[in-house]
Design a protein around this nucleic acid. Structure first.
Lengths: 212, 212, 212, 212
DNA sequence: GATGAATGAGTGTTCATTCAT
DNA sequence: AATGAATGAACACTCATTCAT
């Protein structure tokens, strides 16, 4: 059982390397198998096709990431108090969440980079959009609270747009950190400033009082 | 003279469509030519290769975009006064610049989308990085002024990181607007909020007083 | 009339260059025309096809060469005397002939090199064989005289083989000189030794007395 | 095991045929595969590219040929005695060498013909020159001995030229025999006369006494 | 589990040639 | 006399995938 899987493991390793180097589309199964020292036929014993090989690399990390995001963002939270205290609380929450997400991202650094930057051509090519969507709902809620909206009916298309952007930006922060920092520690440090930037943006957005 | 260029125009049109649909890499010259109703040989009369065909679509818009960016961001500007007034001025400047850039982006909407989202595999695949780099230098300067640094020597690696992020974010705002707004008018409207968000971020970054 | 032919001349010049560089087969008409500054269509006004373009370069020099060879080798000559004096005479004759041929070869150096070394793929690709054949007949006759054969009937297949080789060798000497000497003068000098070698070979062949 | 390699063998056979018929450049992989009854993809399973397919045909015979040449020509030989006896010895040696080389040539007749006459466009297109160079060094040495030169310094450019020619001629003899004789036996017979011719040439060259 | 062999459709590209204008 | 445009067939080569053994 231990030795059994060695080929599969080797295959996955080599595939990861090739996918990172060339991206999903340009990666060649031939080349992966050559590197792994097996024939393409062998690969097809373990994986249905190119897509499934890719999936076997990124699926688990992605699930882990999704779960972490869901754990923090998915449920509705009850904040009480005035706008400012809500904002403070919500953002503090987000900061904790972000730290956890960062942990996952760096735990599976290669796989996440693969997902975020090199998945074009695979079924994961729109994964970023779906991550954005995940936190968008949560952000929209938070936004309503901060704005003091009593009902969702008050949300305008414009509100939605800016909230969508902020969700997108949050994800982008993660990708930026993942791409430009060598380890979680450094990322954690840099994230503080980025978070600071983001919170500044949120507050300005809520107040909408800088440019008229 | 009118009929003369029709084949070339048809070819470019069909190429644009195919590139947008499938991305640079997956686009097939055969398929483009079939759609345009000519043989591949005909295409090679007008264009040296796949790359040049792509270039003929995006080169002019890109140049236009680059020039607009350069016009606003490239020169050093002299601001006088205290931090707050400098910030206000600089950001106002940027807002004007952004409006102009938005104009170019929507004037060549399809081509810019091609460049930003579908150029993987072509020599333009890193175009976003180079746009970021363009404004990064300008942002770094602005940042120093706002921070009250007397010399560039004061800039830390951390400063550079956050400024680089802000440059990246600025470009991302443009891409987001281009991708999600149907026309320039709508984009202009939405941009106000995004700009507001960004400025809030900048100020928070300069003051660095929200999260410690 | 003078300016008229300029395009044709330019075309021939560029073709010569391209054919020499790449050989008949790899030479590209496109590339020739590009170099000449005209379209391929223009070329087809002057020349029926690739073959005729090549021909227009080498035909005249080849004719000149053929004529020179024919003038010296084609007619039967009457030698009187014993074997040795016939040999001496015949070879002297050949030496004169060779000098004349060398003159033609160097007069049209580029064209002849084209013919001898770069015609593969064209209808001239077997030109060397036909040159060999030309002088073979003459050599066979000379050989009979020297051998003291009274009738052609005495010639064996073995005789023919060696005479054919010597004819081939003669042509090879020319090609070698053309290929390795920078001008006629140098070729003339080197030819002396080569001729000496050849004559030594002839005499040994006639006497057949070195290896048994 | 018997049936295993049949496709590869078929492929090589058909390739040999096509290469001989059309030469390296004009040979079409499609046509070879069609003849062999497989798709081009199958060919690419066995051979990296056109070049390697060609190589797989000619490499072994070439190696064999090179080794045979090297075995006879590469080492310096010690001859003692006067010019005439040295000449006799050296030439006898060469005769033996030539017989061995002829053996190899006819053992791999088709492959050698391919190499000598039809390799234009492949990396073997200059193979003849390199064969010439191989024996040139040996010939130069022999020539010095025969001339009675005490040092290599005495060799003139003219000496080199004629020796180079003689080396070239030696190779040409092989090619001539290979091209014009149906089997080794016939070639061996004809070679005697050609060798006789060559030796006559050598002696005349050493003595330099025929034409002044 | 894995190999060796093969497929078939596809890729971008180049070519000599043609012809209306 | 020459252009600009186009053809159509060919090229070497790569790909993901399949399957009998």
């Amino acid at each position: 059982m231990d030795k059994d899987k060695q080929t599969k493991i080797k295959l996955i390793e080599c595939a990861k390397k090739e996918f990172i180097e060339k991206g999903y589309m340009k990666a060649s199964l031939r080349s992966i198998c050559r590197e792994a020292g097996v024939t393409t036929g062998a690969m097809y014993f373990f994986f249905k096709d190119k897509e499934e090989l890719f999936e076997s690399i990124v699926a688990a990390p992605l699930m882990s990431l999704m779960n972490t995001i869901r754990a923090h963002f998915d449920q509705e939270k009850d904040f009480i108090g005035d706008v400012n205290s809500i904002t403070a609380l919500a953002l503090k929450d987000d900061y904790v969440a972000a730290s956890d997400i960062l942990s996952v991202l760096f735990k599976y650094k290669e796989e996440c980079l693969l997902l975020m930057n090199r998945a074009q051509g695979s079924k994961y090519e729109k994964i970023i959009d779906s991550l954005v969507e995940q936190i968008y709902e949560h952000y929209l809620l938070m936004y309503c609270r901060m704005k003091g909206y009593s009902s969702k009916k008050n949300i305008t298309a414009e509100d939605k747009f800016i909230v969508h952007w902020m969700a997108h930006d949050q994800i982008d922060i993660f990708i930026h950190l993942l791409t430009h920092c060598k380890d979680e520690k450094e990322a954690g440090r840099q994230m503080k400033n980025m978070f600071n930037y983001m919170v500044g943006g949120w507050i300005a957005t809520i107040r909408k009082d800088i440019i008229k």
